[in-house]
Amino acid sequence: MRHVNVCLAWLLTKTFWLLGIISRSQALAACPALRLVHSCTHLFQCHKRIKALFGGSLMPPKGTGKKVRKMDPLSDVLELIGFRSSIYFQKNFCGNWKMSVSDTGFAQFHYIVRGTAVIEHDGHVENLTAGDLVLFPKGASHAICDNPDSPATSGQDVIAGLQAGDEPFLDGAPTTRMICGHFQYDLAHQHPLVKDLPPRILLKTSEMELGTLLSSLISLIVNETLTKEIGSRTVTQYLSQALFASILRAHFVLEGSQIGFYSGIRDARIVSALSAIHEPDGWKYNLADLASIAGMSRSSFAAIFKSHMGQTPGDYALNWRMFKARRSLEKPGQTIDQIAHDCGYGSSSAFSRAFRAVMGVNPSQLRTTSH
């Protein structure tokens, strides 16, 4: 009966919305099921756009003689580095205000919904206006304020005050509305994607083709965070990945980057090879196999792959196997022998030598410190 009532509420609310009896915002507020459907619809549309922008999951060129499972290299990397996100708050800042943010190791971001702000970082001062998004991909100490001379309050104290119901920066008229949060991933995984990230990214979304998409994604994430409806954690996770991917894409397009991981996943030949390497049993492919999958000669493939990724195909494949092994070692369940087998090694001793060469520690040492 409960499911019938939910369906009936959804149908009635949707009908009233379509007939114009209630507004879109009233409909979404009245019916949790409709909010979930609406968020999932936006998520699906965003996923299609991000997939198209990043080259999507591509099959190898025809005639290579090999079939590789469809995969998305960017999603593989985000999963490997333990990508997740958190929204701290969306609030008004009034009068004179300044928030100092320490380097937490997270990728902090600030999005100006309304008004203006000033960002201070590494001796530089930049003015922000509505629609601007600033991201510190590797974490960095910085301050955001209405004026550099305003007295500062730490970001931790701001969050603590909000949680305790003692909201700061309310003296005077509202000057700025801002959304703050972070993306979190393991910086110890020195994948080319992480290494290629600059210390700061500033996007003027109001002047960009992707501006509407970015602002919509942020609004959806905030809504899911605040409402905490069924499935909100999963929806938020995928929306956050779409937002992070969109920010990277916008940045690299503006910078005109022709090298690095981003340029690699824009090349269908490299995507095909990466998809093969990222397979669960991707260790079975040698240089000749990968070149064939990419539809290139071995010498051309090796040169182009290194120009994009900054390392040889063999080094990338080895590092990828060890990164995956590290993630498995950090979780309970599998033995070191099982992980060695999954990585294509016939013995745990051979696996341990390779792991130590890449990670600097033995698998047993990492497992001990992780649990």
Rank of each mutant, 00 (worst) to 15 (best):
I201Y: 08
A173D: 10
P151N: 09
H182W: 07
T205D: 07
G172Q: 04
P198L: 00
G155L: 04
I159Q: 12
R177A: 07
P168R: 15
D186F: 05
K195S: 13
S154R: 04
P151D: 14
T205E: 05
A188Y: 06
R200W: 04
C145E: 11
S150Q: 08
P148Q: 05
R200Q: 13
F169P: 00
P192T: 03
A164D: 10
I144P: 15
I201E: 03
I159N: 05
G161T: 13
D186E: 10
C145N: 07
T153I: 07
L193Y: 11
Y185K: 05
A164G: 04
Y185V: 00
D171P: 00
G172E: 03
P151Q: 11
P148V: 11
P151C: 03
F183Y: 14
V158Y: 13
P199Q: 03
P168V: 00
P151G: 08
M178E: 07
P174T: 13
M178Y: 06
A173L: 13
C180M: 08
L193F: 12
G165I: 07
L162K: 13
A188H: 12
P168S: 07
C180N: 08
D149S: 14
F183I: 00
Q163A: 10
Q163C: 03
A173Y: 06
G181A: 06
F183R: 01
P174C: 13
P148C: 05
V194L: 12
T153K: 14
V158K: 10
L187M: 08
